[in-house]
Design a protein around this nucleic acid. Structure first.
Length: 490
RNA sequence: GUCUCCUUCGUCUAGUGGUCAGGACACCGGGUUUUCAUCCCGGCAGCAGGGGUUCGACUCCCCUAGGAGAUGCCA
């Protein structure tokens, strides 16, 4: 039987690292086994639904280059793939469960449920969850509630005794006493929409899903899902509860850990290759040493056997390292087009860029390429090529081993050296500067520092001589002049 | 509180009874160098604890501890 897997996000917020990791595993597993990858949108929570979130799912996937074989926009033999369009279907299945005695109507108001929960929390001990108030309503009680038009939901009737035993392909056999299962969870909400529990079981069956890969946060409700599969008399898919991705505080990854949504990573200048590579290594590995994997590699190499059970902490530093690696693999040409949007956004260049701007960009790439960790670093690194530096701290100019007088002297010497800068090669220039530094009894690094700051506004910059050539000697001279007067101010 | 899952360097991980416990990021040194970055070389650092099983346990079993998740008319 051919493999069919699905990624089933709910459009309630931006796609985060955790969800994408699951999606990637689904996708790679399908590709590596000539299976089918399905995208199903679980938009059954009408209150939390966001149109932008739906778009974000598509955007994130397109950007990463993940394609699906069946989905809302693509169609397929088991559609529609938008759960809100399958509403009636779920109602029928919920009714079927009632007929089978596996579910029942509940007329409890949200208010009653709230106060119930409050009391339970106050008590701290003992029972939690629904008290099964409506489970054994008599027919007459039910009828009178119906006549009053009380809103109702459908709840799953969890057996009071016994246990559920199921096998997780990753975690092994898992046994749960029925009394420990969430007491009678809601299947069909009062607005007629199903909850996740009902919807995914119905759809996974109808869509002939063979493997369910989902995060471990679902593990505790898995027994209840098993119960439903059994009540319907359906064949069980294989379950893989994937380890969670945690933030550096050890908790489930969430907004508070900074920007962990894919679109935010994208905006900061992370490459899809880097994200894909890094995220794939969260809870999965290939062998004892290989770390670089392209999408194509993963589409072939990925296997469920190499999955890890323990949760993984998301490490921004390592992602950044991967990103730097992938940036360095790009050609200069690629970097140019990758970096341009950031220059535009910063207001450094026009749209489209002028000829002069193009020239500068082309020239600066070799200088900044290997200094880039994320693409947005470009504005910091190359800003001085597009605007004069802001001089704000005199002490910045003064090297540790020098004082202000000496620094002024050094800067004057640099200005003098600059006059026939263009007539010399870089090697010759270096020699002249070196000689002058020697003459003034200053280390070359110290000698060049004030000039570097005059030019770029920072102690850290791309190589000096190349930078001077790029910006032009005339402009450099002006900046040195400004620096000189700034530094001589009392 | 209760239930469930998890536990190898700070982090991601390899390891499936006999290894000097391997790799990567981070970190710390050193080298290259006009700063930074890159690059190269080197280093620090781990089997949570306790019992078993076994000739032999990181590997198997039990207990303890710690962590996480769930406990919603959210997914």
């Amino acid at each position: 039987m051919s493999i069919r897997v699905r990624y089933a996000p709910s459009p309630t917020g931006k796609q985060h690292i955790g969800g994408i990791r699951t999606a990637l595993f689904d996708y790679f597993f399908a590709r590596a086994n000539n299976g089918t990858f399905i995208l199903r949108i679980e938009d059954t929570d009408r209150e939390r639904f966001h149109k932008d979130a739906l778009q974000d799912i598509y955007d994130s996937f397109h950007w990463l280059g993940i394609t699906w074989d069946e989905g809302p926009d693509k169609g397929g033999p088991f559609g529609p793939y938008l759960q809100s369009m399958r509403k009636d279907l779920y109602q029928n299945y919920a009714l079927e469960l009632i007929e089978k005695g596996a579910a029942y109507y509940c007329y409890c108001t949200p208010e009653r449920l709230d106060s119930l929960r409050n009391e339970q929390q106050k008590r701290k001990k003992g029972e939690t969850g629904y008290d099964r108030h409506c489970r054994d309503l008599t027919e007459t009680e039910r009828k009178s509630l119906e006549e009053k038009g009380t809103a109702k939901v459908i709840r799953l009737k969890i057996p009071l005794e016994g246990e559920v035993l199921f096998h997780d392909e990753l975690l092994g056999d898992i046994k749960t006493m029925n009394k420990d299962i969430n007491p009678d969870p809601v299947l069909l909400k009062s607005d007629g929409f199903p909850t996740y529990h009902l919807a995914h079981v119905v759809d996974d069956h109808l869509m002939e899903i063979t493997h369910i890969l989902r995060a471990q946060e679902w593990l505790s409700s898995a027994p209840l899902h098993i119960l439903m599969f059994q009540a319907f008399g359906w064949k069980l898919p294989k379950f893989y509860h994937l380890p969670l991705v945690l933030g550096n505080d050890g908790h489930k990854l969430a907004k508070r850990h900074g920007s962990t949504s894919i679109t935010e990573f994208r905006e900061k200048g992370y490459l899809p290759e880097a994200i894909m590579n890094y995220v794939s290594l969260l809870g999965w590995s290939y062998d004892d040493s290989r770390v670089f994997f392209s999408k194509e590699d993963l589409e072939q190499l990925f296997s469920l056997e190499k999955l890890n059970k323990a949760p993984a902490v998301f490490d921004f530093k390592k992602l950044e390292w991967f990103n730097g690696q992938y940036i360095r693999k790009k050609s200069g040409k690629e970097i140019i087009s990758l970096v341009k949007p950031y220059l535009k956004k910063a207001g450094f260049i026009h749209e489209p860029a002028t000829e002069e701007e193009e020239k500068i960009i082309k020239g600066m790439i070799p200088l900044i390429h290997e200094r880039l960790h994320v693409l947005s670093d470009v504005t910091e690194l190359a800003g001085f090529l597009f605007h004069d530096p802001v001089l704000k701290d005199k002490n910045e100019f003064i090297p540790k081993r020098l004082d202000r007088e000496k620094t002024l002297q050094v800067l004057e010497a640099c200005a003098a050296l600059l006059s026939d800068f263009d007539s010399r090669t870089d090697t010759e220039n270096e020699e002249s500067f070196r000689n002058k530094a020697l003459e003034l009894q200053v280390k070359l690094g110290d000698f060049l520092l004030p000039l570097r700051i005059a030019l770029t506004g920072s102690r850290v910059s791309p190589p000096l001589f190349e930078s001077i050539r790029l910006l032009g000697v005339e402009k450099t001279k002006e900046r040195v002049k400004q620096a000189l007067s700034f530094l001589s101010q009392e």
